[in-house]
Computed example of a mutant assay.
Amino acid sequence: MSAPAHRLIVDVDTGIDDSLALLYLLASPEAEIAGIASTAGNVPVEQVAANNLNWLALCGAPDIEVALGARVPLDCPLRTTEDTHGPQGIGYAVLPPSGRSLSERDATTLWVDLVRAHPGELTGLVTGPLTNLALAIREEPALPRLLRRLVVMGGAFNHPGNTTPTSEWNVSVDPEAAKEVFDAFSGLPAGRRPILCGLDVTETIEMTPDHVRRLAEAAGSTPAEIISPDDGPQVRSTASNPVIRHLSDAIRFYMDFHRTHDQGFLAHMHDPFAAAVALNPAITRTRPATVDVEQHGRLTRGTTVADWVGHWNREPNVDIAVSTDPAAFFDDLVDRVGRFAKSVG
């Protein structure tokens, strides 16, 4: 067998959409996860790490290294969002304990050791706050140039925020870390700059009950997986496929959250889209920009500010995703994750 085309370091705050991103990568034959760094964000870091281990075990994945990362942001108190992702970060789902152990390395050491051991080979994917990566860059300033590429789910540009009127969740949890990371990637050429998947694009990735039905169908799961806004919080999936059953319970919680915030019975799947971009950047159109992060504004702390035209006389430090084809993305996701769930179940 040929080696996977993409080896990744995945840094997550798992999270419902992070969960689906992990499953997407596990379902992708061209992807190999070299290590998973856990960071506090959607839920505390110990729960994040447990979620990662439990999903890997449920999916029968290899013994991928899962490292415990930052418990708190660089310079502010931790905020979590159980109202969005549930008390354990996975909605209504309750995953069986994995019996697997955490790495003896912490997440910072994992990042540094892997990029030093495999210079130019690894793609970094961050779908949570950037705390672990900022700490790793402090330890190894050459890290941005040792990576093949970085993809980040974070930021909001020509779009409202989802945490404050102007800020996106991952960046708002640790604005200092986001600024340190974006600054550290300055000077890289086109093709090596980080790709930022911000709310401008990720909020077009609207998962609906029909996508869940199609996933279950692709997995050969029975009965038909029909989720509804009329389902009460006590309702649980009866899907025969264990991956579909737990995924459906997680996603329905996420849809309930969006519905109660007047966005419809759907779920914005920010992180799976970023995972897909990490494997195939061509699925999104990007524009280069210089991005900085507001640190001190009373109303605007955590806002990602993009200079598209050179007002600051600074070279671009990122490529921002500006458009994609959501229907094509979901066709790909349903096919990959559905077939993978079928092979597991």
Rank of each mutant, 00 (worst) to 15 (best):
H85P: 01
E82V: 11
L110H: 03
C76D: 12
T131M: 11
P96H: 12
H85N: 15
T81E: 14
L110M: 14
T80H: 10
G89F: 03
V112N: 08
L102H: 05
G86I: 08
T131I: 08
P96F: 08
A107L: 01
G91L: 08
R116W: 02
V112G: 09
T131H: 09
V115A: 02
T84S: 12
V126F: 12
A117G: 13
S103Q: 05
G120K: 01
S101N: 13
T84K: 13
P129L: 11
R79Y: 02
E121T: 02
T84C: 10
T109V: 12
V112F: 02
L102A: 06
R105H: 12
V94I: 10
A107G: 12
W111R: 06
E82D: 11
T80G: 08
G89R: 09
W111Q: 02
S101Y: 01
Y92V: 01
T123K: 12
T127G: 13
T131L: 08
P119D: 04
D75R: 15
T80P: 09
L78Y: 04
D75C: 05
L95I: 07
L122N: 03
T123S: 14
A93L: 06
V112E: 13
A117V: 03
L102S: 03
L122W: 00
V72E: 15
G124V: 07
R79S: 14
P77R: 12
V94L: 15
P97W: 03
T84G: 07
G124N: 05
A107M: 05
D106R: 04
D113M: 13
P87K: 08
T84V: 15
L130M: 13
R100Q: 10
T108H: 03
P96M: 12
L78H: 08
P119V: 03
L74P: 08
C76N: 13
T123Y: 08
T131V: 07
L78V: 00
V94E: 15
A117I: 06
P77A: 14
V112T: 15
P73H: 03
D113P: 09
C76W: 00
W111A: 03
S101E: 15
